[in-house]
Amino acid sequence: MTTVSPTTNNERQTTNKLVASEYFVLFLCLVVFAAFAPFTPDFASSGNLWNIFTACLPLLLLATGQTLVLITGGIDLSVTASIGLSSVVGALVMGGDAGWLRGSPAAMPVAIAAMLATGALVGLFNGACIAWLRMPAFMVTLTTTMFFNGFAVWLAKRNVDAESIYNLPPAFLALGTQAWLAAFLAVVAALGAHLLLARTLLGRWLYAVGHNPRTSLISGVPVGGVTVSAYMLNGAFAAMTAILLTARLETGSPNHGKALLLDVIGAAVIGGTSLFGGKGKVMWTVFGVLFLSLLGNGLNLLNLSDFMITIIKGAVILIAALLDVWRNKFVRGS
């Protein structure tokens, strides 16, 4: 069922093709780029583009992980708490003042392993509540956000009597100062998630569970296990984000990444991942992240005040969501 439009069939098909294409958001990125470049000479400089790229890595990692969860029809609001807890745990393992392994050559690998394990465990807890106790994802992850965030603060205060933990080993800090290293890790992780979704059994199962968990169960898909693994993977992605942020700021803190949550969901949804499950791709999310980052950076270079940037970003995300509804309803849906 479609609306009657006065344009001819041919023109409409061209528009429809463009709008329904999975590269639509990439096209929007180009529009943003073209809109900003004439006004801000710095915008298109290679230095600035590299800057945009390195600055969006934490968002890229988080949004990629979140995409896995969104595809199963869930949502994970607790990623910021996972980041904070991982950051504190990692810093407590290797920190120079009070770290359990301070000075030891094993400090950095053990700390990184501990951070990934922390993220995955938070995901396991969330996933277990959602898949096996059948609690709503929104509620579970909202409350675990409070719980794990509080836990991270307590852990930090108990050990170093402050929220922030400093003096991390220089090898670890290289992840922050050598931007190409962080970029390499993030790109590899995103590529891994892409291959997982597109090429493996677990990937197909994630989509199936998102489409219809009952049908999946009856068709022999281990629905519980698939759901839990989505949350655990997302937790691991949050931990990777924690590694980047901790290294870049040379501080372990429960407050890292707190402002990222809305951008994460926003980037995934702008990319085209459905909040109802069953639909989404890592590539789409990458486009969404790129779009948000370009927009934010461009507005920044125009020297707008901070609140103005926030207003415009909010408006643009809303418009993008509207476009998404529109293209689903009138182009793909009919």
């Binding site: 600035n48 800057n51 390195t54 934490p58 700021l249 407050n255 707190k258 402002a259 270079l301």
Partner: peptide
């Protein structure tokens, strides 16, 4: 209040 955001802002200043 977001240190990471502040870092990005400072880097953007440097870049300009």
């Amino acid at each position: 209040g977001d240190t990471s955001k502040q870092f990005d802002q400072v880097k953007s200043f440097i870049n300009r």
